[in-house]
Structure formats: C-alpha cells, structure tokens
Design a protein around this nucleic acid. Structure first.
Lengths: 217, 217
DNA sequence: CGTTGATTGCGTACGGCGTACGCATCTGGT
DNA sequence: ACCAGATGCGTACGCCGTACGCAATCAACG
C-alpha cells in the first residue's frame, strides 16, 4: 500500500554506490552500514542486495568512484608533468575520500575507472622510455609514496590544536627529556602546524627528479 | 569452585597484547575479537577489560609491539646506511604484521617503543645535517614510501597463481585490447611474479640518493 | 586469627553489524 | 489475461564491542 506506488526501479547500483560515497563523506566510513545506507535510500537493508552482491562489492564500486576522480596521465606526453598532475590529483582525491586509502589497492575486482587509470599511468611510463621492469618499479614507487602520504596525512592523530596539545602532554611531558628530537617535533608542529601541500610536493618532486636521472643513466 | 584455584593474576596487559598479536598473525586481523581473544586466554570476554581500557587501547599495545621490532637508527652514525637498515627492518616488520599497516600512524596514544623509534629516526636526520623542516620532509618521504609500499605489498589482490589468473581474466580478457599497457602488467606479473625485496630496494635507494643530493646542495 | 577494602574475574544483556532465505509485489511480453 | 522474471522486503541467525554489577580472591591491618 504505502510503498506500492513507489516506482520499482528507484534503486540501482549506481544510486546505491553514490549514496554510499556521500554517506562516507558526511559521517565517516564506519557510518556506512548496509542498514544505514538503506535508511538513507528510504528502503530496507535487504533490498540493496538485489543490486550489489555483498558489502565487498559495494566497496569495489566506491573505490572506482575515487579512481574516476584521479587525473589519468596522457600517454606519450611530457611524462614528468603528466605524472606530477596525476600525483597531485590522486592525493587530492584521497584527501576528499580518506576512507578509500586502505581500500584502493585491496580490491579483487577493479572497476572500469581503475582499469583506465592504471592503463594510462603504465602507458605514460612505458612511452617515456622505461622498459617494463623499470616502469613497474617507478609505478610502485610513485604509488607507494602517494598512498603512504595520504595514509599519514588523513589519519594524523592531532588534527585540532587541543588534541595536539593533549598528545604533546601525554607523549612528551613526563619523559620529554629522554626524547629530545621527538619533543621538538611535537612542540614545533603543534606551534606552526603542517603545510601538507608543500610536504607532498617535496617528496613528489624528489622522486620525479630521481626517476629522470635514472632514465638518463 | 572450578576456577577458584585458577591463580588470580594470570591475566595482564602484556599477556593479553602478546596473545592478540599472535592471534592476528595466525588467523588474520579480523579474527581478533575480544571474545576470541578471551577464548585463547581461557577466560571470559569481560575479564580483559580489567587490563585494557577498550579495544582501541588493545590496538595501541599491539602497534607498539610492531614498533619495537623496527631497527631504531643510531643518532650520529652514517645516516644513509642507518636509514637503509631502518627502512628494511620496518618493511620486514610490516610484512610480519600486515594488520598493523593501517594502524601505525593512527594511534592517539603512542607507546614507549613508538616514542623511542621516532626519536631515533628524527635524531638521525637532524644530526645528518638536515634542518628541522627538511628533516620532517625527509621523514615523511621515507615513511610514506615505506608504509605505502607495505600497504600495496600485503594487500595485493593476486597472491596465488590461480587468483592471479582469475583476475587476469575478469580484468583484461574481455576488454584487454582497450587497455594494452594494463594487460601487459597482468600477464607479465602473472608469469614471473614479483620480487618485493628488489622492488622495495629500488625505491628506498632512489629516495636515499635523492636526499643525499638535496643535503649537499 | 578475623575483618575489611581493593583488586580481579566473569555472567548477563543491549544494541549494532552482514546477510541467508523465502515470500510478496510489480512489470513487460505474449 | 496471463505468466515469468525482476525487484523489494520481513524475519532471523550468529557475530561484534562493551555497560553494569555481583562474586571471588588477596593484602593489610588490628
């Protein structure tokens, strides 16, 4: 009766995945449960399973959304600047979707956007002159750095000044004298904070320069 | 009656944390629940809470075990070789304890081993000649790479040949022609597999060389 | 020795989770 | 008008973390 006139094809994989990403953005990754997601879509939990095999499959979809937001480097262009753009946009995407970091490289069934992206990046490296093995090396290096940086950036224990201060106390106060270098970090970083953009750029540039030298050697 | 003669102080934070790490090693991270852990310790779930504030606190303890297994670089030694040793042992530790990767940088209450380790690493960089800001840059670069690499290494979708083959099919078979570079990766890697040691070494060496150049510029 | 107060272990219970299973309802093709 | 397949959903099971409070034990003291 009530739901009788609800048009039947309101639900779809796409709509579900979209809402899941939105929900994760608003309430954090843990707030994405099949139950809460169903609520948000004004439907029942088990209804979702007609469009999504299981939660793992849902995560596959969510991850692919993130991949679709990363710039796919042009194959055959200026590899260094293309990969710089890729790195920057990848970090930005992971910053927008922190929940994705631990999932990106874990998927058993990569979606279409993932395929496009990986193909473009690998192609960019190969056409830049790296042979297969070195391209894999370079790819791994770039991605490890990017994901690792995002991991640190988005899960840093002190986000607010007061949390930082609290941590400074519990970490350092008692035993600060024993760990002078660590104390310096906590104090200094609490004072001026981080510029993550500059931080990321430093590493990315160093790696790209290193790869260029490697390529011409 | 039955348990009356059970010596009372069998349980302790240390024993609990140890068992938790062992359990994670054997059955995977998800198998570490307060219930299963209590089982392994022949006690009741709620008994654990006398020695551990909550599950988060338990994770803090587990993470500190992993930190304690990483080589703390000597402050004032040959920074490059010290950091190479540190990097190698850090990766090894994360390989032994894959469940830790996503947790290491997230802890709000770092344990003693964590403090020692971070202090040593930061000290090694400062005494190598990096000023504070650059030392932070270098530290972030090294750790991002290490954690990112471990993340990829330990969660790679294809571990067994058959899984690799299955993934090759679903990823590439239909649409392989559209993604030639990706197809190459799947096929080649399925054929000869990975040498993670060499893979990690490539990036670590490139980064250390880059840092050295940066230091002398 | 007896008493007492603190420490430690645990039984019960609550509200969440993912999802197997099967029925109810709607829709499009004949 | 009918039926077959697609779609939505109600119920139920076995997990999870943990709040709460009682029971058993041990340490200290009179």
């Amino acid at each position: 009766m009530n739901r009788a006139n609800r048009s039947r094809t309101n639900l779809s994989r796409k709509r579900i995945v979209r809402k899941a990403v939105a929900l994760a953005a608003k309430g954090g990754f843990d707030s994405v449960s099949m139950r809460s997601l169903a609520d948000k879509l004004s439907t029942a939990p088990m209804s979702l399973y007609r469009h999504v095999a299981n939660k793992e499959d849902l995560l596959d979809g969510m991850v692919d959304v993130v991949f679709s937001e990363m710039y796919p480097p042009a194959i055959g262009g200026d590899w260094k600047s293309e990969l710089r753009k890729r790195g920057t946009s990848a970090r930005a995407a992971l910053q927008r979707h922190p929940w994705a970091i631990g999932l990106m490289e874990t998927r058993m069934h990569p979606g279409p956007a993932s395929a496009v992206h990986h193909n473009a990046t690998m192609g960019c490296l190969r056409e830049a002159g790296f042979d297969f093995r070195d391209a894999v090396h370079a790819y791994n290096l770039l991605d490890s750095y990017t994901y690792g940086f995002a991991l640190g950036e988005n899960t840093i224990p002190f986000e607010t000044p007061e949390e930082s201060a609290e941590m400074a106390k519990t970490t350092v106060a008692d035993r600060g004298a024993d760990y002078p270098y660590l104390a310096e970090v906590v104090v200094e970083l609490g004072k001026r904070g981080y510029d993550y953009n500059e931080e990321f750029k430093f590493g990315l540039e160093l790696i790209l320069d290193g790869l260029e030298q490697f390529l011409h050697s």
